[in-house]
Amino acid sequence: MTGKHAALNRFFLFLIGLVLALIGAAIGFLGFAPAAEKAWRSGAGSGVDTLADAAQASAIPGTQTHWVAAAAVLLGVIAAALLISWMIAQRQRVRRTAARAEGDNGLGEIVIDNRAFEQIVEARLADEPGIIASNVRSVPAGGTNTGVRVRITTRRGASPARIAAEANTAVDEAQTILGKKIPVLITVRAGARAALGHVQRVS
């Protein structure tokens, strides 16, 4: 429901970290063991030679280029596209629909728009003096599930217990009105003024 690939991010970071550490250790080892350095120089050198020969053999007729280079460019572009899609996947995804439900009479589907939920919650919280603003978003919550994130920004010094209770009442009210129990995550944050300075330290 945070809308981010937390587990996948950590897996990739670990993998990239492991590869970098292994390459680093290998380079350090080349300096440490001259025999390994010699073996690498001749082994990798003949590998490069083989590749160069293969490249020459696969020359595209009538041009200076060869298939190996073209394949390398293609692979590189595919890898770049994957990287970019991974970067784009980092942003919070949002859905317009908070929930869907089958009608009792079997005539069709009921779609609850995110704005319906938002307006009920905001209207209910508008009179609470400790709350500066509230923000409601429908986000993917695993598979086809949708969850609703309610972010509350509080005035400095407001009681978190009171704010949490108010927010929970507002959310319950919205669920009752809309007739569906939707997974909701409520986050209570401090306003900009209180958030200045250190994250965990305010006067």
Binding site: A164, A167, D172, T187, V188
Partner: peptide, 11 residues
């Protein structure tokens, strides 16, 4: 709480 609720330490 009735719904999962998270509170910032600043609050």
């Amino acid at each position: 709480a009735a719904n999962p609720t998270i509170i910032d330490d600043t609050v």
